[in-house]
Design a protein around this nucleic acid. Structure first.
Length: 283
DNA sequence: CTGCACCCCTGTAGGC
DNA sequence: TGCCTACAGGGGTGCA
C-alpha cells in the first residue's frame, strides 16, 4: 500500500497488534518476497524465531519492526499488505510470508499480488536500516527540514513532480499525493523546479504535508481491496481527492475538466485552468 | 551528480 | 468466448 498515509496506517496497526509479541515461526512462501535478504530465505526464517518485536517504525514508504538492535524492514511495493488475523484461516493465493507468534494469537501475513514488495532482516538496523540510508526524511519526522529541502529542490533541474517523487529528496510522496499537492499549490507538474520561487516551493511542501495528514485521518486512500489496513479495511480518502483519477470530471475549484497526461509511464492529473502548462515544461 | 529508459510482477478493463 | 493492449498508490539499476 504505497504512499505515506497508507503505510503509516499499516504501521500503527502493527504497533497495536504485533508489538511486544514473540515470533514462533516464519514461513516464506515465495522467494521473491525476501530477495533483498541476501543471506537467503532459510536464514530469514531461522533468524527471526524467538525474537520479540519492540517497535514499529517508518520512514517514507518503508516500515520496520525492531527486535533488539535489529530491524525487520518491509516495503509494500505496489500491492503489498500486512494483515493480522485468525491463524487458522486459509492461506490466500498471494500470501508470501507468514509469521506466527508464541502466544498462539493472531498471525501476521505479508500478502502481495504483484511481488514488488519485500521484507528483509537488517542486523543493527534498529534506528535506520542501512538499505534505506538514501531515503530522505518524510514530512512528519523531526529530521525533516522544509527550508533545506526547498533550497535543494530549487537547485534541481527537473520537473517539480519528479522532484516530489524523488525519495532521496523527500520521502513518502507517491503519484496520488504528488498530484493532489500540486493541485492545491496551483502548480503544473512540469514546472521546472529552478524557476519556482521560494514561496511557491514552500506552499507546495505545506500542501504535501497537509494532504497527507488529511489522508491519514481518513485511513488512507483506497479504490479497491488492494489497499487496506492490517485488519483488511479500506481507507476513505478517495472521496476527498481533487484531481487523481478524476479525468474529465469538473475541477472542484473552477469547474474546468480535469486532464490526464502521460508521465513517467504513469499518469499525471491536473486542472488545465488552475494549473496551466508552463512555456518551458520539463517532463 | 543528473536524468532517463528499462526492468521487476499480476490482475483487470476495454477494444476488437 | 478469446486475444491484445493499456494501465495500476512501487523502486532499483545501469547507462549516457
Amino acid at each position: 500500500m504505497p504512499e505515506l498515509p497508507e503505510v503509516e496506517t499499516v504501521r500503527s496497526g502493527l504497533d497495536k497488534h504485533v508489538i511486544g509479541r514473540t515470533v514462533d515461526t516464519v514461513t516464506v512462501l515465495h522467494p521473491r518476497a525476501v530477495r533483498r535478504h541476501l543471506a537467503g530465505q532459510v536464514d530469514f526464517e531461522a533468524a527471526l524465531r524467538g525474537r520479540t518485536f519492540d517497535q514499529a517504525r517508518r520512514r517514507g514508504k518503508y516500515l520496520w519492526l525492531t527486535a533488539g538492535d535489529d530491524a525487520v524492514l518491509a516495503h509494500l511495493g505496489m500491492s503489498g499488505q500486512l494483515l493480522t488475523g485468525d491463524p487458522d484461516r486459509p492461506l490466500g493465493g498471494h500470501t508470501r510470508i507468514r509469521f506466527t507468534f508464541s502466544d498462539g494469537g493472531q498471525d501476521l501475513r505479508f500478502d502481495d499480488q504483484r511481488t514488488f514488495g519485500h521484507m528483509l532482516l537488517v542486523p543493527g538496523g534498529r534506528d535506520l536500516p542501512a538499505p534505506i540510508a538514501h531515503i530522505a526524511p518524510d514530512p512528519f519526522e523531526p529530521a525533516y527540514d522544509a527550508r533545506a529541502l526547498a533550497i535543494k529542490m530549487h537547485r534541481r533541474h527537473v520537473g517539480v513532480k519528479r522532484a516530489l517523487l524523488d525519495q532521496s529528496l523527500i520521502s513518502g510522496v507517491g503519484n496520488i499525493y504528488a498530484d493532489e499537492a500540486l493541485w492545491r499549490a496551483k502548480l503544473h507538474w512540469a514546472r521546472p523546479t529552478e524557476a519556482l520561487t521560494g514561496a511557491q516551493i514552500s506552499r507546495l511542501l505545506e500542501a504535501v504535508r497537509d494532504v497527507m495528514a488529511q489522508a491519514l485521518l481518513a485511513g488512507g486512500t483506497s479504490f479497491d481491496s488492494l489497499y487496506v489496513n492490517v485488519n483488511g479495511e479500506s481507507g476513505y480518502f478517495s472521496r476527498e481527492l481533487n484531481v487523481y483519477g478524476r479525468e474529465g470530471q469538473e475541477c472542484r475549484r473552477c469547474g474546468a475538466q480535469i486532464r490526464r497526461d502521460h508521465f513517467m509511464n504513469r499518469s499525471a492529473y491536473s486542472c488545465p485552468v488552475c494549473q496551466p502548462r508552463p512555456r518551458h515544461a520539463r517532463p
